[in-house]
């Protein structure tokens, strides 16, 4: 496995001067299998396109450790490229750890339009310098950060409540709006 250092944060589509511009363009059509409105790049899952020892490499990173959609994404990337005649190896690299903070602003807008409340920014930085404080974690301060106000993606009301910590996929929780009474998914900050 290559140990190249990967970028942190959102990945913007490179311009035409980038040597792998065509590959980036092709992969814009590969979406998250569970959320077909956002591309892997917009989700922050597609991390890099680079030349490895054995040729072109497309680097993706898993979201949750056990996300079952990972295999599908791997196959979708390969199929899309091979249809266009591009030979590339798909590399799964876990460091640095994916974060919902890496989603692009566009992705958050698309999630919202699709009916999924986008994630809040993660409160704690996961940089090595950050010091985890278990007391703060255990206190009410943590709870207010984790269970922040989540506006309804349908009507915008902030009068919403969590119905379930866990939802239809590993990355979502289930909420409902007490104003328009619609249930909705909330993409959990990770």
């Amino acid at each position: 496995m290559s140990s190249d250092v990967l970028p942190i944060g959102s990945i913007e589509l490179p311009d035409k001067s980038d040597s792998y511009y065509r590959v980036w363009q092709l992969l814009e059509s590969v979406t998250d299998p569970e959320i077909p409105v956002v591309s892997l790049r917009e989700m922050g899952i597609l991390r890099a396109i680079r030349m490895g020892d054995d040729g072109l490499e497309v680097v993706i990173t898993p979201t949750y450790s056990g996300c079952p959609a990972m295999e599908q994404m791997h196959d979708d990337v390969r199929a899309t490229l091979s249809r266009a005649g591009v030979v590339a190896k798909v590399v799964i690299q876990i460091a640095p750890a994916w974060s919902t903070d890496w989603m692009t602003a566009d992705a958050k807008d698309k999630l919202h339009a699709y009916g999924i409340a986008p994630p809040h920014a993660c409160v704690k930085s996961d940089s090595p310098q950050s010091v985890f404080n278990p007391i703060q974690f255990a206190s009410a301060k943590f709870k207010s950060a984790q269970f922040a106000v989540i506006p309804c993606p349908q009507c915008g009301s902030e009068n919403t409540t969590e119905t379930s910590h866990f939802g239809s996929t590993a990355c979502k929780a289930l909420y409902r709006c007490l104003h328009c009474m619609e249930p909705f998914d909330y993409f959990k900050p990770y």
Partner: peptide, 27 residues
Amino acid sequence: KQSSDSHLAAIAAKSFKEVQYHLAHSR
């Protein structure tokens, strides 16, 4: 996350995010 084994450190960084949610849920 500070392990001398960089691969274990990477797994720890992901698992840390997940276990925080497990702790919040069980708590």
